[in-house]
Design a protein around this nucleic acid. Sequence first.
DNA 1: AGCTAGCAGTCGAGTCTACCGAGTGCCAGC
DNA 2: GCTGGCACTCGGTAGACTCGACTGCTAGCT
Lengths: 355, 355
Amino acid sequence: MAPDITIPVSDAGDEGQARPPLDERRARVLRAVVEEYVATAQPVGSQTIATSRELGVSSATVRNDMTVLEREGYLVQPHTSAGRIPTDRGYRFFVDHFERAPGLPPAQRRTVSDFFTSAHRALEDLLHETGQLLANLTQHASVVVGPASDAAVLRSVQIVSLQPGLALVVGVLSNGAVEKEVLHLEGEPSEGDLARAGTALNAQLHGSTLAGLPVSEPTGDLVVDRCVLVARDALAARVAGQLEPLYVSGVSRIAMEQGSYGTVDGAARLLELLEHQAVVVSLVRGLLDHGLIVRIGAENEREELRDCSLVLAPYVVEGEVVGSIGILGPTRMDYHRALAAVATVSQQLGRSLHT
Amino acid sequence: MAPDITIPVSDAGDEGQARPPLDERRARVLRAVVEEYVATAQPVGSQTIATSRELGVSSATVRNDMTVLEREGYLVQPHTSAGRIPTDRGYRFFVDHFERAPGLPPAQRRTVSDFFTSAHRALEDLLHETGQLLANLTQHASVVVGPASDAAVLRSVQIVSLQPGLALVVGVLSNGAVEKEVLHLEGEPSEGDLARAGTALNAQLHGSTLAGLPVSEPTGDLVVDRCVLVARDALAARVAGQLEPLYVSGVSRIAMEQGSYGTVDGAARLLELLEHQAVVVSLVRGLLDHGLIVRIGAENEREELRDCSLVLAPYVVEGEVVGSIGILGPTRMDYHRALAAVATVSQQLGRSLHT
DNA sequence: AGCTAGCAGTCGAGTCTACCGAGTGCCAGC
DNA sequence: GCTGGCACTCGGTAGACTCGACTGCTAGCT
């Protein structure tokens, strides 16, 4: 259904010194090593490549090329007399130069479009399920950062009485999100007071953003004013301390891929990182403006992400970047597939939020 | 602050054949084995117990007792000539018979009461943070199941227009939860129509539970009726397919305690289980009516929980059980501490929701 | 100049052995 | 009924050895 995906991967590392452009065959060797290693998780030797790939050269030649690739920093040997495995730079070259999107396999493509054409849901549910979709497609953990509600406009504000002295202020935002906060009201105002306060509050705040709430104006009724004030401040306080909503899915994948992360507890530390909403959100937001992006291993500042790669894409609604989605997996991941999945899903998500 | 916790642990297993009541000293030996094993994670030998615990008997005697305890099914040896480790039955005896609540250590007790006396939050946030609190206290993964919204009463229903043809129906419930659903409206009704529909809807549904929404009555205006119908059905559909809200925290702990679970991927399977909201909710709800409860290892039907223990407690608001909280850890856990933590937190949570 | 074949060297992983020590079971004696 | 003592078991560790998958290098070929 969707047209072929074009994947303008932006180069994350600023790379400093220019390397000599890789000779054609060497590049093919590098590619072969990456693909083989991703497939098998074993260091790959010269012979494997010379025979299984049609390069038309002998293993000795491949060996020579590998020596060069290692000197240039694209490959390493875990130890002498083992095969080679790609370095972060090796993966980086792979992503940057062998970008020929095979697109998503048809079955997955169907899954995605089925998902988005099926019944619409409330914003939160949609984002959450999108995360699960992505995790299933890629078999990696996924993160989805939702739109910040401080940019959206209040469509409605109301005060609902729960119990005497306890009420809820509920604000409905133009993006379909709902913000609410509990109010403890002194003096137990009557239902009538609350209703008046709700009306006044709605009149005053309607149309403004959560980040820019106007100060409340007196109505003349002291009790009502008091309620309005409390409610307004509660809303303002809420948004102040608030983060973009975050949805993390597929964390069990991290435990399964354990072997691919450094030590046993490398995975545990990753899981812990993912539990810190604030950290993850700021991490993802920091990469928001770069389009479809890949962060490989040590390109991530965070120590915990040293053995991980991040594939992220923003999603765009009405021409505005409102959030981003992505996956988190071991550096040894299938980048083509991951990029295709993240790109397609982010596009479709944006489109699906459009209407 | 809180009075001493009384812990009426209900026996989960129905135990079938009565065992001969354990001789006093043997019980002490069993207890020592459990405590030692929980502390060290190593099979414990007769000598360790004979010396470090003041039982006043020699290691040979302890050995004899252990043989008996093993024959009775309270202990096992991982292999000949290793120390003993408790079986599920051993833990069960431990929990049932050595119940002397040491309460929470003072520091933790303070943490808990600070938590609950600090600023009140919206229901969802409170539950989520309570889960984190519990995870921190016990160092295990925690689950919190929130109140089902189908029992709560609608305090307010409104329809908010988002874009032409798109609106949101928002229902505020007496327990402070908010349910909402997106409406796709054909024929793009005017704002006025929507407002009228909202008023009509509120009048009709106010006071009823989500599970028992009355059928909508015609108002005479076709457009308005149509909106009311769509909105009512959306709300009804939403609650139909809906589960109690679930908050899972501290999953990284599972990865850390890995060793305590069977194989490496035992932990992975646990994590996966916890991602299936429906499964976890039904699991927890199934145990809701039993008060503070401990489920040890194979007492859990679920294969994945074979090496885990579950400590659960309902929380009570206005005399009604509305949800439950608990932790999930390896069978080798500190049950006294876990029970104390879960009991205190559940009580305080209930109390905190009361007002 | 570039590729290849062949060979020597390296090192991890697996296997085998021996050994140590923690812990048991059992028995005879107090 | 408890204890000391003794023989026995078996997991875990360390060392030696082999195997095999690699590499690097060099000489020779195209």
